[in-house]
Design a protein around this nucleic acid. Structure first.
Lengths: 147, 147
DNA sequence: TAATATTGAATAGCCTGCTATGCAATGCTA
DNA sequence: TAGCATTGCATAGCAGGCTATTCAATATTA
């Protein structure tokens, strides 16, 4: 009996595994940062703003590689939740500067250690060399998919 | 200057990379199967039904590791799109048997080769040994996150 | 400089995750 | 067997992806 493309084994498929793994990561992160009043996409956005407060929506779109509409919705929820404010941009009246509230600044330590905890849990079964290799392989696959 | 958890580098974070990679996989798959009238979650569901037609919703939930409500919505869209029908289960009137339409059966070859193409594109920069290692590492990380 | 092109954001609409509820069918047990 | 617990699904509501569209502000250029 010939083997064809129709024999598709999801448990050996990189795409299937990537999706499953990402869902589990998101769930684990969600569990840990929910007590802080944060959702995963908000955390990712905060990572950039903790580093550089006062970015524009466009800056965030480029740094996080999501669509502009996705970021617009995330920022709307973050504004609703008191994590950011938007202030006028003196250089361009179309764009606004996204600024962290004191509440958002205060979350940095707890949120980053929650995320570090998720990574440690996920990688707990891997040796240091394997962890390094895993991150490197994912980066290369991301590169290949971005062409 | 002390290094703390507050120095969180997203490009070295397994969770961030997993999310980014999964989004790129999903986009690539979506592009390739859109002409077939399929969306990614529908394809995943079809993979199980091509293998075993006549599963229940509960079977699909267990095999694909998604929540029951998620699968209920996916099946609703698949029924709307003429990919499945639901027939009475003689053994349990609560559950129905999900059956493929001829249309869905006819998509198997094209859809699986589209997915195979995405995997090949994604892994194109990796050696055969690296591809093997990558799949194995993802499986182990999934296992660690499932506890 | 007036007309046109580009750019930054907002909005609408869809898919796919999730949690929380509720309901009907089935199973168990006192 | 009557009552309670469990199970299979549907639905509501939300987050966060996406595309497509629109609008106002800015930039370019004829």
């Amino acid at each position: 009996m010939l083997s064809t493309d129709m024999d598709f084994k999801k448990d050996a498929s990189a795409g299937y595994l990537a999706n499953h793994m990402a869902r589990l990561f998101a769930l684990a992160l969600h569990d840990r940062i929910r007590p802080l009043g944060l959702a995963p996409a908000q955390f990712m956005t905060l990572l950039e703003l903790w580093e550089d407060d006062g970015l524009t929506q466009k800056d965030l779109v480029q740094r996080l590689d999501v669509e502009q509409a996705t970021m617009a919705n995330t920022l709307k929820r973050m504004e609703r939740d008191g994590l950011i404010t938007r202030t006028e941009n003196p250089e361009d009246r179309r764009a606004q500067l996204v600024r962290l509230t004191p509440k958002a600044k205060a979350l940095q330590e707890d949120a980053t250690s929650a995320a570090t905890g998720v990574n440690e849990e996920a990688l707990s079964a891997l040796s240091p060399e394997e962890r390094q290799a895993f991150v490197s392989l994912m980066s290369r696959v991301i590169g290949a998919l971005q062409d």
